[in-house]
Amino acid sequence: MSDHVPRTVLDSLNLGLHQAMHDDPDVVLLGEDLLDPYGGAFKVARGLSSAFPKQVLTTPISEAGITGIAGGMALRGLRPVVEIMFGDFTTLIADQVINHLAKFNGMYHGQAQAPVVIRTPMGGRRGYGPTHSQTLEKYFLGVPGLTVLAPFNLLGEDPLGAPGQLLCEAILRGDSPALFVEHKLQYLLKLHATQELAEYSVSVHHMGVQFDRPFYALRLKSAPAAQITLAAYGYMAQLALDALHQLAYEDEIFCELLVPTQLAPFELAPLFEAVARTGRLLTIEEGTFSLGWGAEVLARTAETLGSGLRTAGRLAAREGVIPVAPNLEAESLPGTADIIRRVREMV
């Protein structure tokens, strides 16, 4: 519907929403401060209320209410999308997600579906402080009936760009509720076009039934066999890619980076194949360390590969509040330098 080529993740997500609303008038976006000219706190919704005035509903500050309402709408055939302004506020919607949206299909014995997509930006590094910087999706991983998705900043084959395509397809084709995890700094990341990634070989494992949730594997072309597998998603995947590049050129340590776009349910076959070759796995996430995404990924890899997993590590945020002061904030969150340090230790 547009000749516009998305340049950033933000562009791509915005195009994905436009496309979904254009394709299906039953797609309705609910959230706070969505109307133009503001277009949402991070501008992902920009232009939508002008182009599709009947499909955008700006709401009071009622995260639980709008999520529950979206559940009721979905049970009656609509395809609602909810924008939660900051990922930190997903605690307010937990009951609606866990006890309502994710339950309907199972508890009504398959006789009802609630395909709601809940989009929200997680993450720090903007100086927003303790209640506006967290990465909380780990609390929603492993909720039966809930899909958790996170886009990666590739351009891909689709004119929407990979993030917009993932979002658009989740909205139009998903048959269960999904938490779509964005990241505040990821919005501004450039989408890597194939030519810019010429140094890399990118293989894509196509996962999912109703729609594709690609699982990417990236390594440097013509590099020796990878010595370690890195696993990361979302914004951390970009930091891991930066680390992979530096490690190759500065340390001659060669890594392979595995990037899922579906975090839950956990479907990790491409990762197991990669780790079976390297024997080493480092998981990288911006959430806090204990009981996080990496813990589950490592546990499953160990269960699957047994002694084939020789060395394992997790990199995550320090367990404390995320400070506003830039130096303190940077110390609390894992960065590229931390990834490089951990990889050197492990190889």
């Binding site: 309402i69 009721g72 049970l75 009656r76 009951d95």
Partner: peptide
Amino acid sequence: GTVAMAAGMALAEKRA
């Protein structure tokens, strides 16, 4: 939560 479900259903009926 049942009130939210019902409100969402009423919104769907209003649109329909």
